[in-house]
Amino acid sequence: MQGIEIKNLTYTYSQKTPYEKKALDNVSLKINEGDFVGIIGHTGSGKSTLIQHINGLIKPQSGSISVMDINLNQKKPKPDLKRLRTEVGMVFQYPEHQLFDDTVEKDIGFGPKNLKLSTEEIKQRVQDSMELVGLDYNDFKDRSPFDLSGGQKRRVAIAGVIAMRPKILILDEPTAGLDPEGKEHILTLISKLKNDVSPTVIVISHDIDEITRFATRLIVFNNTKIAFDIPMAELFKHEDELVSMGLAVPMAVRLANSLKKKGIALKGNIITPQDLNASVEAYYNNKFNNSESNVLIDTATSAEVRS
């Protein structure tokens, strides 16, 4: 098995104290190799607790979990957490808060060094990772990570995780607190990492408009449970459920659904603003100008706008 398999996982924090809090309630889930998963849910809905399980950072209290061929419930011999953590790369919220070394190169090399790789291999991996996140090796390698801008710091921190060459990459709120430019950088980067480094990617985000841009599967957590788990293309069917959970609905979905109620039925599964634009354009052309030449010109412009 190359993916993740979770069965009936339940977890409670601070058991038997006034601070006792259930975080996961009987959660079952299977993630296959190559999945691009987006997870949304409120703070405290259980999503962070779930990913901490996947990386062996908390031990399962009840239920079972295995990641690739590593069974995390196994007692003897204990599961090989070291290998687990090279297979599963974890980018936490505000990952730049974990930077500690005096140069960018050393900080990114921390993970590979813990893997006891050779000096050349470490250097190679640092170079590759920096190139992937878009930081020039010669420019940045000797700089102190603490002198960089917020967006650059975050890219250094992500490079530090992908230098482990994980097969599964998990990112928790990767764009939190960044300005629009920094956000854009990270979002582009995530898709690139999926193609070049880790075939399986899981992203947790509060921002559904952001998640719809890349994930192909959506898991919604509500109140310690999985509320639904669907292919992203079916998201438009679940507007009411999302609203009832107090979660945001992508604007394009909302618009398409309310236009439909007003008798304007746009075609296609509309999830992103790009989908909306294309459908509105098609609808408009279909209704008002059927002349072929016009359609041709418009398709050309629309391709340009979409790109």
Binding site: Q52, L57, R85, F92, H97, Q98, G160, M164
Partner: peptide, 26 residues
């Protein structure tokens, strides 16, 4: 922070005393 460094393969509970002390730096 401990979780983040553990996720990067850091070990805090193995090795000789001076190695353990050094592992606290991150």
């Amino acid at each position: 922070i401990i979780m983040a460094q553990k996720a990067r393969g850091a070990a805090f509970d193995t090795g000789k005393l001076h190695e353990r002390a050094k592992s606290l730096i991150p």
